[in-house]
Simulated assay, not measured.
Amino acid sequence: TAPGALALIALRGRWPALVGLARRCARDWRLLIALPVSAALLGVQLWLFLWAPLHGRMLEVSLGYFLLPLTMVLVGRFYYHERLDPLQWAAVACAALGVAHEVWVTRAFAWPTLVVALGYPPYFVLRRRINADSLAAFAIEIALLCP
C-alpha cells in the first residue's frame, strides 16, 4: 500500500502537499501526535479487513461496512450538528431497515461488526481535524504503519 500511495502522490503531483504536511508536523506537536493516532486507527481497520476472511469472519466485517454509513450519519448529526431534510431521513430509515433485516437473517453481528462500524468514525473525525490533503495524510499514515 505504501508504494501505491507514493505512486499516486507522484502521478497526481501532490509532492508539495506531502512536504507541506511533513513541515506542519515539524512545527505543530498536536499534528505530530494526531497522525500516528490516525495511523493506528486505520491500521486496526486494515488488519481486520485482512484478518476476517482468513478466519471465517468476513460476513461480520461486511455487516460493519453496511452499518458504517448509518454511524457516519449519526456522527454528522450529533457531533457536527448537521441537519437532514425529510427525504434524507427517509433514506436513512430505509438503510436502517435494510441493515436490521441483514442482522436478523444472518445473525452475524459480533465484535468485528462493531470494530468496523464504530472504529472508522473516530478516524474520520480526526482526519477532518488534521485538515490536510487526504492523499498526503494517507501516505504518511501508511508510512507510519510500515514498521
Rank of each mutant, 00 (worst) to 15 (best):
L59K: 01
V61Q: 14
G64S: 06
G64A: 13
G64M: 11
Y65N: 12
L68V: 02
L68N: 14
P69E: 01
L70T: 01
L70P: 03
L70I: 04
M72C: 02
V73Y: 02
L74Q: 07
L74R: 05
L74F: 12
V75Q: 01
V75T: 15
G76L: 07
F78R: 15
F78A: 05
Y80G: 06
E82G: 04
R83H: 05
L84K: 01
P86S: 09
P86M: 12
L87P: 00
L87N: 10
Q88A: 06
A90C: 11
A91G: 15
V92M: 02
V92T: 11
C94E: 00
A95W: 01
A96R: 03
A96G: 12
A96E: 06
V99C: 00
V99N: 07
A100C: 10
A100G: 14
H101P: 00
H101I: 06
H101W: 15
E102G: 08
V103Y: 04
V103D: 07
W104L: 15
V105E: 12
V105R: 14
T106D: 07
R107E: 04
R107F: 00
A108R: 07
F109R: 13
A110F: 09
A110S: 13
P112N: 05
P112T: 10
T113W: 10
V116A: 11
L118Y: 15
L118Q: 09
G119I: 13
Y120T: 12
Y120N: 13
P121C: 11
P121Q: 13
P121A: 14
P122W: 05
P122L: 13
Y123E: 03
V125D: 03
L126S: 06
R128D: 12
R128W: 07
R129N: 02
I130V: 11
N131Y: 01
N131W: 00
A132M: 09
A132D: 06
A132Q: 04
D133C: 03
D133E: 13
S134A: 14
S134R: 13
S134E: 15
L135A: 03
A136N: 11
A136C: 06
A137K: 14
A137V: 08
A137S: 15
A137Y: 06
F138A: 12
F138H: 10
F138T: 15
